[in-house]
Nucleic acid binder design. Sequence first.
DNA 1: CTGAAAGCGCTAACAC
DNA 2: GTGTTAGCGCTTTCAG
Lengths: 340, 340
Amino acid sequence: MKKLTLNDIAKHFGVSISTVSKAVNDNAEISKEVRDKIQKYAKEHHYRPNRVALSLLKKSTKTIGVIVPTILNYFFTQVFFGIEKTANARGYNIISCTSDESYPKEVHTVGLLSAGIVDGLILSLSHETQAKANIEHISNFIDAQIPLVLFDRVSDKIECDKVIVDDLQAGYNTTKHLLNAGCKNIALVSEIYNSSVGKLRVSGYQNALKERNIPFDSKLLLKVKKDDDLELLITFLLDYKKIDAIIALDEMMAADVLYILKSKNIKVPEEISIIGFTNGRLSKYVSPSLTMVSQHGKYIGELTANILIDRIENKGDFIPYTTKIVKTSLIERESTRSIK
Amino acid sequence: MKKLTLNDIAKHFGVSISTVSKAVNDNAEISKEVRDKIQKYAKEHHYRPNRVALSLLKKSTKTIGVIVPTILNYFFTQVFFGIEKTANARGYNIISCTSDESYPKEVHTVGLLSAGIVDGLILSLSHETQAKANIEHISNFIDAQIPLVLFDRVSDKIECDKVIVDDLQAGYNTTKHLLNAGCKNIALVSEIYNSSVGKLRVSGYQNALKERNIPFDSKLLLKVKKDDDLELLITFLLDYKKIDAIIALDEMMAADVLYILKSKNIKVPEEISIIGFTNGRLSKYVSPSLTMVSQHGKYIGELTANILIDRIENKGDFIPYTTKIVKTSLIERESTRSIK
DNA sequence: CTGAAAGCGCTAACAC
DNA sequence: GTGTTAGCGCTTTCAG
C-alpha cells in the first residue's frame, strides 16, 4: 500500500481535499459524522501527513542539525546524548553530522544544512577550522538567518549564542590542585594545542604557575600530533627533568600516559600524579583509577539545545546573544597524591 | 539577508523563474551570457536550492533515519560511525534517534520517520520491543513502502534486509575457547537476556557445553536487571560453586566483573578467566586487559548503510531480502589463561 | 533561447 | 458545513 495522501482520502469519500484536511485535524467546522468517518478511515489506513509538504508550507522542519568533530569521543557522545534528549522532548529531530576534524568537510556540511532542512544548528568547530581560523562558511550560515549555537570549540569571530566549558579555570584549578599537593614540575600533554579549548587550558596552567612564581618551561608542554609516538615523547620528557605530575587534555591520552608510566615501572601516583580531562568510563576502570576533570557533557548538550530551540521559537523579537560558561568539576581518584 | 529563492533572482533580472532554474542548473538551453550572469549572482549571494521543496518534488529527501537503542554504548556508537561515514559518502544525511530501549518511544519514532522525511530506515530493536515481541509499528512502516534494514537486534517476524552478528557462533566459540583452556564451570552474566542477541549467545554457550556433555546449570546463568546489585549476584555465584570463568555479554559488565573479583582478592586470570563482548576502549586499558569478542561495529554500520542505500536507489525491480551474518573475532588479552 | 503552467502534499483564507 | 483557491520553492514539459 503506497503512502496515502489527503487527495486519496478525498477521492475515496468524494469530498474535497480541504474537508479531509480539516477533518483529520479535528476542525469543528466539519460535521461530527464526516469528521468521524474520515478519521476512522485515516487511522485504519495509517494516514500520516507528509512532513516534507508541511515543512515547505510552514517554513519549519522541526529538525535541528548537529555537527561535532567526532562521535568517537566520550565528551561529544555525552553532549550529543543531552542534545538528543532535550530536542526530542521539545518535539525536534536531530540531523547529525561529523566534521571528522576536517575543515572542508565542515564547510560542506554547514552548506548542506543551510539549504532549509534544519530550523537551527548546533556546532562545535573542527580542529582544522580553529587552526585555520577561517570562518566564512559560518558567517554565510548566520546570514541565512538560521539560528546557530556554538559549543565547546568556539570562535571569538563568530557572533552567536555559545556554550563553553570554563577551560581557563579548569586548567588553572587542575594545576593549582597539583601544586597544592606539593608537585613542582608539572608537565602537560595536549593533542588539541590549536583549539580554543586546548589553548585556554594551557593558559590556566600558566596562570597557576605564575601565581607561584614558577617559570613556564615550554619543554614541559608536549604537543602531540596524530601519528606521534607518545611513548617516545614521554621518555624524552622524563629524561629531561624529574616530573611530579602530568596533565593530559584527553581521557584516552591520560590512560595512555598511565599505561606508559606503568610499563616503565614508574609508580602512579607515588612518583608521578596524573590528571586527565573528560571524565568518561575509562577513568574509573583503569588502575589506579584516574583523577579527572568532568566537563558535564550531557548538561552542556541540554543547555545548548534549549538555547537553540528558544531562539528558533522566538524568531522576531531579537534577544542578545549569550555565552554560557559551564564550570568543570575535579573528580578525585587514585592517580593523584599529596606530597608531604 | 533572508534566504534567497529562485523567485528573488528572477525578479532581480526581470526574467522568468524557470529561466533562473535552468541557469543555476547550467542547462545549455539558456544562453551562455544569461547563464553566467545568473550563476555569478547566485554564487555571490550564496543561493542554495531549498532542499525541502526539492524533496517534495522528487519524493526523495536524501536522508536516512537511524534508530538505535542507545548511543552510550561502544558497539552502537561504532555502528553509527560506520553508517554515517558511508551514508555521507553516498550523498545521504542521517537523522538519528534513540529508542532508549523503550517500546513506546520506538513506536513513536518509527511513526515520525514514516511521514516522508526519510528515504529509508536503519533500526536495531529496543530491548522492550524484543521482550514484548510486538512489531506492528514495523509492519506499518514496511507497508508505507519505505526501505528498512534491521541490524543486530532483529526479529524473525519482520521481513526485510538484516545484518546480524553471528551471536550463536560467538557464544559457542567463547565457551569452547574457555573449555579448551581447561575451564569447567563457566558462568555467564547477561543484561540482555530478553533480546535476540542475548538469547543466541546463550544458546551458543549451551551448545558448546552439550558437545562436552556438560549439563547446563541455570544457576550459572546470571540475568542482571537494571538496578540489580551485580556484586551481590557474583557473591552468591561464587558461594554456590567454584567458578573457572565468567563470560559477560557487555563490555561494561565485563569490566565490572573484573573490578568485583579484584576487590574480592580473586586473581584474574589465575583463578577466574573473563571474556567480554564488545571490544571497546575499556578492555584494552583495564588491568589485566580483557579478552573480548569483537563484533566489528563499524563494518556492520557500513554494510547496513550500503544495503539500505542500494535498495533505496533500486526501487522498482524488487531484489529478494537478504540477511548478512557478520562473524565475530576473539581478541585475546590478559584476562584468560590456560589451565594445564 | 525564454516563459507559462502544472504539480509535489498540505493549510488557510475566503466563498458559497 | 463544505469547497475553491492560492501558495510554500522547485523542476519540467510544452509553447512560443
